[in-house]
Amino acid sequence: MSTIPRQQYLQKIRKEKWLIILTQAFIVIAFIVAWEVMASARIIDPFLFSRPSQILELLIKLAQEGELLHHVGVTVGETLAGFFLGTLLGLLAAVLLWWFPSLARLMDPFLVVLNSTPKIALGPIFIVWMGNGYGAILTMALTISVITTITVIYSGFTEVPEGYVKLIRVFGGNRWDILRKVILPASVPTIIAALKVNIGLTLVGVIVGEFLVSKSGLGYLIIYGGQVFQLTLVITSIVILAVVAAALYQFVAWFERHWTSNPTSGSARARVGSGG
């Protein structure tokens, strides 16, 4: 008796899911078609707005010349390097702040100021300091991501209920035990949230760095295209950038699933329940 309504329900869910996917695809296709049609009808100026067919042509050309892979490779490489370094440094700094509460109190106003300063403004200084190269780009990316990482992860540490700390202390555990057995595993969801923000911020930093350094990468293609009034190159680069950004986010999301779905591997399943 009850299985028929259940099947109907599941069918309805599946139907709705497909309807949404189809509508989304329709919006994208309609946008591209409208763009192309309006450009060929001269309703919009293709010199200023480019057109999908030109973008596709340029994409194929860039791919054949090996330029596409080169520039995407440079940007992704820099972003991943900045992401791992930023996460590692941020995590390390957060642990230090937790370990030395007086250090946390000392650093608090500096972190607040640094967090609200637009770090992009420091770009020109980095170029002078680090030279016109990868060093400046990486520093830019790190500066943008690391402060946020520190504050997010550190506040996660401080939100771990005091009872867990008490428990470890009563069992004779030291500060290292508290960090290893409670604070870090309990903060896994916070750390993952920080990673998700971090990957986006790092990409912003890398693109700004490439704008300034102007040697290679998607940021360079965008700034170069703008300077020579080749708007097709600019828009093509932005399209590639959007795909890269989505892929990088999926990478973090995959990492999250992998980390949290396996309860036996150390620090998984890290939602701190309220207990009893």
């Binding site: 209920p161 009872g163 867990y164 008490k166 428990l167 009563v170 057995k181 409670v182 595993p185 309990a186 896994v188 309860p263 620090s267 998984a268 399943r269 890290a270 939602r271 701190v272 329940g273 309220s274 207990g275 009893g276």
Partner: peptide
Amino acid sequence: YMLQQDFLLPW
């Protein structure tokens, strides 16, 4: 030490 909450580690 036993507390009001059990403080079992959820992971």
